[in-house]
Design a protein around this nucleic acid. Structure first.
Lengths: 358, 358
DNA sequence: CTGTTAGCGCGTTCAA
DNA sequence: TTGAACGCGCTAACAG
């Protein structure tokens, strides 16, 4: 069986050719148009009940399947939207994709999921490729500031929605969580617990989420009269490793130590805690730590993490909904802002004593 | 701006029409075929260098993008493969998708990611839909036993690869991790630690992974002469909640208690540990727990989890590679089996005393 | 109700 | 080296 025999000389065709409308029509001595009409729910009333049934039976028998790319050539729609993420390894993205898929399914639209690895060059190529595929709409979930131009450019051809990572000053609808509010809740929590010197481990400032978290945290900390100690730097990428690095730098800076630290996401928080544990510094007794996102399992860590729940599913659902409404021709579709939820756990408590080292 | 004005009565066309080959050709007083040739790297040698450059410049200027669906009508290829997962919420799937994307990118193939929610009806519909979209290949990552027929049927039309969740007796290549081996390593670890009475919290038996884990664990436990206590039942779905349920049932069964438990995945293991903690039973002192998959963060749990690393990226990469090779016409493409890695952590230790309750 | 014709955008084939 | 004609599978528009 090393040689296929069904085509004399060329590439062996091991796969069955699919039946077309013409095949079904020929089988019944009908015209392809009639078959097309009989098989389309919105037009099958133009076909007599008897021939319609014959057609349906024949289509079934011959294993007919509509050819969506061919159809899209006429209709201009591919029934496809694409969600472009920065990194599928980010657990926070999963519920967002889930929400997108859920809303799309209702419309018979299929989401394509693509990944940029946070590389702007990849982003531009990917958008270009997706336009070539004639996707009906694009949901940009991995935007950085420098991607604005590419987004505006794509938005002249198809509906584009920015979600997950917001972007300011962009002319397309944005679906986001109120990260400023989420960070404000963390700061208020620190203040309520009686902390007086706090700091943050900031994420990269070209991702708007982290800018908003910074702003929200800073504003409430200032308002409540706490000391906002200088951050030890900024993460290049918001990962476990970078959380470790920033916490190490904080400890080794020789600056006054805070009694509470807001890490801009859970992974960084966990990285920070791992450094503290290595050095015998107790969380939350010696230092309180809060994260952001409420990743899976943060409730089951050695020290369950105080964090802010990121309602990813809702974001994805709203993003797909927005795209689909634009696709339907709705004008001036509004941006959407979803509320985060503060989740206090064991990693934060009142300051135990004044061993703030100088 | 509530009314678009560029089309008299119909739907407002707010989006720019894309340029076609014919547009570029007309702009230059050339024929579309020439433009087509000039823009295809494999045929542009048939065009004089000067006109080629004029064409490339004009295409750029007019914003020409190839229309992939239209092209697929001629070539029969859509440059698309689909990965069908049971549940994107499963963190173990993410690296697999990552691997698929990574291998596909090399080929210019774009992976579509779809989700069945472990519903066989959805699975069948989805496969049907993807065949309608003329995807070039299908990677089935969420197969249950009852899906075999649908898989075989699809495999007559396009290359199909089963991955992640293996399926036995299927005529298509399977890319899997040696779960039997992984479970054997867990059992051997228990035996080496001196445990004498062990059991497992099994996942659903219509997912082959769990059958293999059961077989591997059972065989080594028997071989090494340990008591294999009756499992408290079987999880409907391999989740945190089901892990809790099984552990509760084990504790309340009145049967002799094991000193070590193998949960068929990490989520179930963590669920089980949460029940033990509630009841004041210490892990690993009173009871050892092992999981499977090495999910993110399992190293940072209250009690870091002994587990088996699931090399998801490799599985995804190999699955895409297999699909692409089939697509290239390669015959009798072989199945692939990737080796798991045992990861001992703090949740397992030697039995501390004989407080096995009767 | 059904058939005919045309064309979506592209690549292929044959001619020039 | 370039052009013209055709057809992929489908739907839209018009005839009958």
């Amino acid at each position: 069986m090393t040689q296929a025999t069904d085509s004399p000389g060329g590439t062996p065709t091991r796969y069955r050719k699919r039946a077309t409308l013409a095949d079904v029509a020929a089988d019944l001595g009908l015209n392809a148009s009639t078959v097309s009409r009989a098989l389309d729910p919105s037009r099958n009333s133009m076909v007599s009940a008897t021939t319609r049934e014959r057609i349906i039976a024949a289509a079934e028998r011959l294993g007919y399947r509509p050819d969506i790319p061919a159809r899209s050539l006429m209709t201009g729609r591919t029934q496809t939207i694409v969600a472009i993420a920065a990194n599928l390894g980010n657990p926070t993205i999963t519920p967002v994709l889930h929400g997108v898929a859920s809303r799309s399914a209702i419309e018979g639209v299929v989401p394509i999921i693509a990944e940029t690895n946070d590389d702007s060059e990849v982003f531009v190529d990917l958008v270009d490729h997706m336009l070539s595929r004639r996707v009906d709409a694009i949901i940009v979930m991995g935007a950085r500031r420098r991607d604005t131009e590419a987004i505006e450019s794509a938005a002249r051809l198809v509906p584009v929605v920015v979600a997950f990572r917001p972007l300011l000053g962009v002319s397309v609808p944005v679906v986001m969580v109120d990260d400023r509010k989420g960070a404000e809740l963390v700061a208020a929590h620190f203040a309520d617990l009686g902390h007086e010197a706090v700091t943050q481990l900031p994420g990269p400032s070209d991702v708007m989420n982290f800018v908003l978290r910074d702003e929200g945290f800073t504003s409430v900390v200032t308002e409540r009269g706490l000391d906002l100690l200088l951050a030890p730097g900024q993460a290049e990428v918001p990962t476990f490793e970078e959380g470790r690095r920033l916490m190490r730098e904080l400890l080794e800076s020789g600056n006054p130590m805070p009694t509470a630290v807001f890490a801009h996401n859970d992974l960084m928080a966990i990285g920070a805690m791992s450094v503290l544990e290595e050095r015998g510094i107790k969380v939350p007794d010696d230092i309180s730590i809060a994260g952001y996102n409420d990743m899976a399992l943060t409730a089951f860590l050695a020290c369950p993490l105080t964090t802010v729940r990121y309602p990813g599913w809702d974001v994805g659902h709203a993003a797909a909904d927005t795209a689909i409404r634009m696709l339907a021709g709705e004008e001036n579709v509004a941006s959407v802002c979803v509320e985060p939820v503060f989740v206090p756990r064991a990693s934060t408590t009142s300051p135990q004593n004044d061993k703030t080292r100088s």
